[in-house]
Design a protein around this nucleic acid. Structure first.
Lengths: 242, 242
DNA sequence: TATTATACCGACCGGTAGTCTATCCTCAAG
DNA sequence: CTTGAGGATAGACTACCGGTCGGTATAATA
């Protein structure tokens, strides 16, 4: 019985990887700790050496997600060529920045997260993400208010609303992706496109901008994301990079 | 060992009551089935005679909540003296309609629901409620679009946004209520009041109304609700009537 | 009164998250 | 090169969980 000892950090990361895969496919509740350690080829003792509990594992997973998501966003925030509106748009339309395939995978991830048995997982990630995401948004909005681009008060409130819309867009997209037939898909695409336009206008008006200023995605991007996903359904297994 | 047989309906209702109390205080996951049946003074066999599973119990609980909430709303919808804007306002400001104490209890309920361990419970209730709530909202908005009050498209989308804002208001209030010291409370009240004003303006603009049309609550209602709650902290235990 | 359906009981089951003690491995101090 | 301290790992074990099941008492029906 050889006892392989890897670099501890790697072990921890490996545990997270396998947990992520299992939680995303079967849900946090239904994937047992035994499943996780079996998949990772690790004993109970080893697991509890790295994590205090199953909950703690989930927490760590959420943190990792949030860290990765924030890293992708930071580039936009640091870009000196962008004005506040440009920054906000870039932030909302990350699917435009990234290659469509990558975006599709992110959507697919969200689709699995939104499955009801992943509620807990989704909520944790959401919480962790918004904790690091929100200050960035607030800062951008504050800048915009200062230089007169945005005409509103309460930057935190607006940031909240922006986040809500962002999540709601994910939500409705994910549900469409999760749902079944091609015919349904067509209807869902139309509805979603319409919904996104509404969110754009809503944000325009909340921020005191002329209609058409906020662009979550160019017309047709919903269809592009959707079909890209259908053509490569591997997605969920390799979302690691997000 | 006397075997007391009550009216079956009552037994079921009693089970729901005790489950509600336990779920709200300890959370769905942490309150075990044994706890519930012990509290209700009922055997396992009896429980499984009334409910197929613990999940089913939760489902039933969510349904009961939704039914009660909708009943309160129906009066507003059926009021022939109200125009679409009036109806929407009445809907958003149910805390104005009801007595403050009752409202405070409702808030307190939400406060407990938003506790992370009640995620599942909250989600179910939310789902059940919005399933019956959403069509009502859509209908009101459609009426408003038709008679020219609201200038927007995609009633379903707007309804969605309204629901989001409604829930977000609950959310932020609940968090404030849940949080601790009196000093914190003062800050929270100010922040919340500001947030509510923002939501009002946001809805005004989304619906193409002049600023000030939507009234979630008159100035100071946040403080009223908050203090009313602090003065009678029984709340969570007798939310039954909601 | 006999029969059937409903309401109820509680021992039991497989599986769960988490604990504990013992053992192994690494690496720094001597 | 030896040693020993502490980090890392193993896996049997525990308490408890949701759910099942065979059986019993009560109510409804005939």
């Amino acid at each position: 019985m050889p006892r392989i000892i890897k670099h501890p950090e790697l072990r921890r990361e490996e545990l997270l990887d396998h947990a992520q895969a299992l939680f995303l496919t079967h849900g946090y509740d239904r994937a047992s700790l035994n499943d996780v350690i079996a998949a990772a080829g690790v004993s109970k003792g080893a697991f509890y050496h790295y994590f205090a509990s199953k909950e703690a594992l989930l927490e760590a997973l959420a943190e990792r997600f949030a860290r990765q998501a924030l890293a992708g966003v930071q580039k936009i925030v640091d870009d000196p060529d962008l004005d506040p509106l440009g920054r906000l748009n870039a932030l909302l339309a990350t699917s435009r920045q990234a290659k469509i395939e990558t975006a599709a995978e992110a959507w697919a991830l969200f689709a699995t997260l939104f499955r009801p048995e992943n509620l807990v997982l989704f909520h944790r990630i959401n919480l962790a993400a918004s904790k690091s995401f929100s200050p960035v948004l607030v800062e951008i909005i504050r800048q915009g208010i200062e230089d007169g681009t945005f005409r509103t008060f309460d930057p935190e409130g607006v940031a909240d609303v922006v986040m809500q819309f962002g999540l709601a867009t994910h939500d409705v997209t994910a549900k469409a992706l999760a749902g079944g037939s091609d015919a349904d898909m067509e209807i869902a695409i139309d509805a979603l496109e319409k919904r996104v336009r509404l969110y754009e206008i809503a944000l325009d008006r909340i921020l005191g901008l002329p209609d058409g200023s906020i662009r979550i995605g160019e017309p047709g991007f919903v269809r592009a994301v959707m079909t890209a996903r259908r053509d490569s359904p591997a997605a969920a297994s390799k979302v690691r990079g997000m």
